[in-house]
């Protein structure tokens, strides 16, 4: 946790260092003292320790600027940055606390092993016994009060996880539906194309039939002239055939 906080503050310290260097260089222009003294003076300014009695107007201007930047802005910034990082680490409290404890446990276990190796060097039996331990079930008996603190963030995370799970389920259901819809569409398309094909065949057949009948009528016209103008039973008028075909369609 400490490492995380310090690494998070790294960028802040770079800004602080640059400002300290900058203002100490500025102070160096006004007074004839060593640079180290000016650096220390600028650092003291950050903690509101200063003596402005001998300052020139230019020095006073930069002094005001340095107090605003170093004391007011940066010191408040460090508090807010630390607060942010601390909150971030708090969100992962279980992890940081758990790992911290595991480190201590592991350290003690390793040292105990080392000590037992040194102390019971000749009694190898003891060590061998530790290597081949039987497997057991671990039972925990505890008081029923709320043992483990669950932070608000954890509660939100759990809720979010449940929502995600639900969303995933719905998505999978939707994808299944989509697959089924696609399959239905494909089936419909194939049926439709089959129907169209059959229709086309039927049309062709009718057209062929009409052609045949036309030919037939033409042949009969030339071969058997009708005296009374009334068509015989075998002679069907072309208009009637065409109407019936249209009805059928």
């Amino acid at each position: 946790m400490i490492v995380e906080i310090i690494s998070g503050l790294g960028s802040f310290f770079i800004v602080l260092l640059l400002l300290l260097l900058g203002f100490s260089f500025i102070n160096y222009q006004f007074e004839d003292r060593s640079y180290g003294d000016h650096l220390l003076q600028t650092y003291s300014t950050m903690f509101l320790q200063f003596d402005t009695s001998n300052y020139s107007p230019g020095q006073t201007f930069f002094f005001v600027l340095s107090t605003i930047l170093l004391s007011i802005v940066l010191l408040n910034m460090i508090i807010s940055v630390m607060n942010d990082i601390f909150n971030q680490v708090q969100e992962k409290r279980a992890l940081s606390d758990g790992k911290e404890r595991v480190f201590l446990i592991l350290e003690s276990m390793l040292m105990k092993r080392l000590l037992s190796k040194i102390c019971f060097r000749r009694q190898q039996g003891l060590l061998n016994q530790k290597i081949g331990n039987p497997k057991q079930y671990l039972f925990i008996i505890e008081e029923g009060r709320k043992q483990f603190e669950i932070s608000n963030m954890h509660a939100i995370k759990t809720a979010l996880y449940d929502l995600q799970k639900e969303f995933k389920q719905q998505m999978s259901f939707q994808s299944k539906l989509k697959v089924q819809q696609d399959a239905m569409e494909m089936k419909y398309e194939s049926q439709n194309s089959k129907l169209m094909e059959r229709q086309r065949e039927f049309e062709e057949r009718i057209i062929d039939r009409i052609e045949d009948l036309k030919e037939k009528i033409t042949v009969e016209k030339f071969q058997i002239p009708n005296s009374g103008g009334v068509p015989s039973q075998n002679e069907v008028p072309v208009e009637i055939i065409l109407t019936s075909c249209a009805d059928h369609e």
Binding site: K99, F103, S116, K130, L138, I141, E143
Partner: peptide
């Protein structure tokens, strides 16, 4: 007056103090 609850770890393991399996488990956890 507190409720006493019991739970157990369903995977059998070498839980004896000083066992290699427990040590290895801690190493993984860290």
């Amino acid at each position: 007056t507190e409720i006493i609850r019991m739970k157990y770890f369903r995977i059998p393991f070498e839980f004896q103090p000083g066992s290699l399996q427990l040590l290895f488990l801690m190493e993984i956890l860290q």
